[in-house]
């Protein structure tokens, strides 16, 4: 075949495939937003969910998702930061480091249902934490750690070596150089990484069904005692998140308006994740400009 004709055909095929993908994606996002946004109202966001009658909202689920996200970040960030510093600054090139890298890769590729079942076994049953926000946060930590460690490591590694040499020539210890010089420069990258991983955690459901549970008991938002079972701050209460709620009303629920609730909740999830994505992008850029005097 004439190469020029082949070139034209190949171009046409690629354009058609890309067009199909774009149509699918537009349909997908359009469907979620168009069917979902009409259901989002102040009432939907602020009322309690109903199991057997229509008109339920997602107040508790939304709050649980956010609370779980915050707890997860509190647990996982320090560990990820330490590991990221180790991998970026201290790790020698030897078998042990490559073993660690492999372990992190294995952790990041574990199916989330496996992580969920493991945490169910160890924390919910063995340690008797029960279906609770704490168990859920630990499960999400497993899920979050590899992502966060990788992004922290990458943002630390992207700091030029000149900065480390400058620290060393001032007689600073390596640890002081890291905490005083390298870490502040890497903060914009680290924050971007945190926000992106937060988006993942926010939508995770498979790891939560058997750890944070599928029920949302009534909670009081005026009770600030975290040890009171009815308090919204109590980490030991079972908590259904938004993503789990979507799954439940579609598979096990008997709610008459399941499809309205699901489309509304899906739209809320997508919008939150969109905000996380855009926020990560702009905040990272803004902080970078501000802290490095590049503007």
């Amino acid at each position: 075949m004439n190469p020029k004709i082949a070139n034209k055909i190949a171009d046409a095929v690629i354009y058609i495939l890309v067009a199909i993908v774009v149509i699918i994606l537009a349909l997908l996002i359009g469907f979620i937003l168009i069917t979902g946004i009409p259901h989002i109202s102040w009432h939907f966001l602020t009322s309690v969910s109903q199991s057997f009658s229509a008109g339920g909202g997602i107040r508790d689920q939304l709050f649980n998702s956010i609370y779980l996200l915050i707890l997860t970040l509190i647990i996982s960030f320090p560990i990820a930061l330490g590991s990221g510093i180790y991998l970026a600054e201290y790790a020698p090139k030897n078998w042990f480091t490559s073993l660690i890298q492999t372990a992190i890769e294995v952790l990041s590729s574990l199916p989330s249902i496996i992580v969920g079942l493991f945490c169910y076994l160890l924390f919910v049953i063995e340690f008797q934490l029960g279906f609770s926000i704490l168990s859920g946060a630990i499960a999400l930590t497993f899920f979050n750690l590899p992502l966060l460690t990788r992004s922290i490591q990458e943002s630390l590694e992207s700091v030029p070596d000149l900065q480390r040499q400058a620290g060393a020539s001032l007689g600073l210890s390596r640890w002081k150089t890291i905490t005083g010089i390298i870490f502040p420069i890497a903060i914009p990258g680290i924050i971007t990484g945190i926000i992106l991983s937060a988006g993942r955690v926010f939508g995770e459901a498979a790891a939560l069904i058997y750890t944070a549970g599928e029920s949302a008991p009534a909670i009081s938002y005026s009770n600030f005692n975290p040890f009171n079972p009815a308090s919204f701050l109590n980490p030991m209460r079972p908590a259904e998140t938004l993503a789990v709620h979507i799954w439940k009303v579609n598979t096990e629920g008997v709610t008459p308006d399941a499809s309205q609730i699901s489309s509304g909740s899906s739209a809320v999830l997508i919008i939150v994740i969109l905000i996380f994505n855009l926020g990560a992008h702009y905040l990272g850029k803004h902080l970078y400009d501000k802290m490095t005097a590049s503007k």
Binding site: I32, A205, V244, S266, L269, I273, N277
Partner: peptide, 14 residues
């Protein structure tokens, strides 16, 4: 990037 981030339950619901 947005599609990578869409939660799997949303895909399941669709």
């Amino acid at each position: 990037e947005l599609l990578v981030g869409i939660p799997s339950v949303v895909y399941g619901y669709i």
